[in-house]
């Protein structure tokens, strides 16, 4: 959807963001470039450093190293009113009415109170929350309050919307509503940057993603590019139940028979030769599916690789210490 953007087309340009909490390096030289008008996902396991990266990107906390520029090279503090932000830790004043809470968040970003109230009512009606427009936050369910806060973060029609784990705590219906809202905001012209560890949302929504694991960025690209990191998966069911060894001889090494189907991975260029070998073998074809792995698999693969690297380093350090 988004082509190769020019340098000036980035709504977020964060370079080398690093943050220490005590001696712990929570974020290690993370860089993010979010093309204007795109939906960009920051993925990572729990504790990877996603939230801290987003907070530094928005200037809520100062990085120990690195810089963040938003919406055309501006310091985050200077373009606050053009940004919408939903923090990971949801927070609303329990005694406030929903409409007032939304208007308050809009007013913080420069929106007129009365206009904020008007837009709040519109958004809430659209999202099926019209019956709680004048209800106090403390009387709402957690999911409802979360939707209120989400509306509050976009009520002032920001150019950049940053959502930290926006789907957590929402039921499937509200998750779908949120996806719809995100797409609509993108269509309006806003750039959306969100973090999640639920791959399905990222796969459906994101134009580009970054994967953060163990405090550092480990991947950046499109969802398809992430999926392409792993070989394609093949499920092959022969027509004749012949000698398994003879069938396996025509398949790549590591092919595994489960039930009556063979499972194995192949590289992109090996598809045609494989088809030729299967056809020539005479075992026939009852079923054949060749598919890319899901983003979930690519994510798990990347994270496990990083973990394995860390474990190996830790083992190496332990050996060095023991030998010393």
């Amino acid at each position: 959807m988004i082509g190769d953007p020019g340098l000036s087309d980035f709504s977020v340009e964060a370079n080398g963001l690093t943050k220490y909490f005590g001696d712990y390096k929570a974020v290690d030289h993370v860089s993010l470039k979010v093309p204007t008008g795109s939906i960009y996902g920051v993925l990572g396991p729990n504790g990877a450093g996603k939230t801290t990266s987003l907070r530094m990107t928005l200037g809520i906390i100062d990085p120990d190293e690195g810089v963040s520029r938003l919406l055309g090279g501006h310091r985050p503090q200077s373009v606050r009113n053009r940004i919408g932000y939903l923090p990971e830790e949801r927070g609303l004043y329990p005694g406030m009415k929903a409409r007032e809470a939304i208007a308050f968040m809009g007013a913080l970003r420069g929106l007129d109170w009365s206009e904020g109230r008007r837009r709040a009512a519109g958004f809430m009606t659209e999202l099926g929350l019209e019956r709680v427009i004048d209800e106090k936050i403390r009387k709402m369910s957690k999911g409802m309050a979360q939707m209120i806060q989400l509306i509050g973060s976009i009520v002032h029609a920001p150019d950049l919307i940053v959502l930290d784990e926006p789907f957590s705590g929402l039921d499937p219906v509200n998750q779908e509503r949120l996806e719809m809202l995100v797409r609509r905001e993108r269509d309006r012209g806003a750039t959306i940057l969100f973090s999640t560890h639920v791959m399905a949302h990222a796969e459906r929504l994101c134009d580009r993603i970054a994967i953060i694991a163990r405090s550092a960025r480990r991947f950046e690209g499109t969802v398809d590019e992430a999926r392409a990191l792993l070989p394609m998966q093949v499920r092959y069911t022969p027509r004749t139940a012949g000698d398994p060894a003879a069938i396996a001889a025509n398949l790549p090494a590591g092919a595994e028979l489960r039930g009556d189907a063979w499972h194995f991975a192949i590289q992109d260029g090996d598809v045609e030769p494989l088809l030729a070998r299967i056809t020539a073998s005479g075992h026939g074809v009852t079923g054949l599916s060749i598919s890319r792995p899901a983003l979930h698999d690519a994510f798990v693969h990347i994270v496990r690789q990083v973990d394995a690297g860390f474990d190996a380093d830790a083992t190496g350090d332990a050996v060095e210490e023991a030998s010393a």
Partner: peptide, 17 residues
């Protein structure tokens, strides 16, 4: 204390000085 307790402080810190 209220802002810190109900986590509104992050919204405030992100939106205004």
């Amino acid at each position: 204390a209220e802002e810190k307790g109900n986590k509104v402080i992050e919204i405030l810190a992100a939106a205004v000085p």
